[in-house]
Design a binder for these strands. Structure first.
Length: 266
DNA sequence: CCTAATGTTTGTGC
DNA sequence: AGCACAAACATTAG
């Protein structure tokens, strides 16, 4: 579930509750979810430091600490990760990594244990952990989008999911944006006409803005995403049945009426 | 029992 | 090299 809007929600949680507070101690319940250092090493690096303004790039949350060359924590949520703020200072058993601060506890959980918290030593490049990341989807302008898709030979959906090209879009966001842009996910990425690029960029902005406001990709009656869990999903727009098939390795929903499949050549 | 699930990595093959 | 696909990762829900 966590895509860009969910990570942005977690970033705001940190900004509202944790920024400006000193780390008093760290508690590691699940060492497997702490990468790049040991529990003891994390304590040595962070205790006494103050949490500064959190940043986000794509689906990565970047926690920073004060000091000349303060260390960073890089947080990825994968399928089921999330951050929890404990005002009362109590941690739960499923809090894998917890930072005890002056007025509460910031805890990372990952139910299916796919995500993790990476310790990034001072002076280390972020890309060594995150791999190459394209521009954040929020900051991508229309020409940037054209650039990212233009030299791609493959399908539109797989291009939009490629974090090295555009950082932050996941399965739900991409299906939603393609549906609203009336573009079929199997279109060749480089085959879009200027007006199609305009529509894609405009819908991307609208969907991102609304999803960030909600803290997740909405699943209301006017959202394609609301049909994802339905046994017989229907197009919220035309009422016809949606197609559910595997595209770019992911379960994909699309409307056969509003998103015509590409013809020969893309 | 089996299958599928949000994301990413890795291996394989065209 | 670029891209697609499958499997793997760990766990739960159906």
């Amino acid at each position: 579930m966590p895509e860009l809007p969910d990570v942005e929600h977690h970033r705001r949680t940190v900004a509202e509750h944790a920024t400006g507070q000193r780390v008093e101690r760290v508690a590691i319940n699940d060492p497997a979810l702490l990468e790049g250092t040991s529990p003891q090493g994390l304590g040595r690096s962070l205790v006494g430091r103050t949490v500064t303004a959190p940043r986000r790039h794509g689906k990565w949350l970047i926690l920073e600490f004060d000091g000349e060359d303060g260390p960073h924590l890089l947080v990825h949520f994968r399928m089921t990760g999330r951050l929890v703020w404990h005002e009362d200072g109590e941690v739960a058993g499923d809090d894998a990594v917890a930072l005890h601060l002056e007025h509460g506890v910031l805890a990372y959980r990952s139910e299916r244990r796919l995500g993790a918290v990476w310790y990034l030593p001072p002076g280390t490049e972020r890309e060594e952990v995150t791999g190459p990341l394209g521009p954040d989807a929020v900051t991508l302008d229309r020409n940037g989008l054209a650039e990212v898709l233009g030299d791609r030979r493959g399908g539109l959906k797989s291009a939009l999911l490629d974090q090295a090209r555009i950082a932050g879009l996941g399965n739900e966001l991409v299906d939603e944006v393609l549906w609203r842009s009336r573009l079929h996910p199997r279109r060749r990425a480089a085959s879009l006409e200027p007006d199609e690029l305009d529509a894609l960029h405009q819908q991307l902005r609208i969907v991102l803005r609304r999803a960030i406001r909600a803290g997740h990709v909405p699943a209301g009656p006017t959202w394609l995403n609301g049909q994802r869990a339905e046994r017989e999903p229907r197009c919220p727009d035309c009422g016809g049945p949606l197609v559910r098939e595997r595209i770019a390795g992911r379960t994909t929903l699309w409307c056969p009426t509003e998103q015509p499949p590409p013809g020969v050549g893309g």
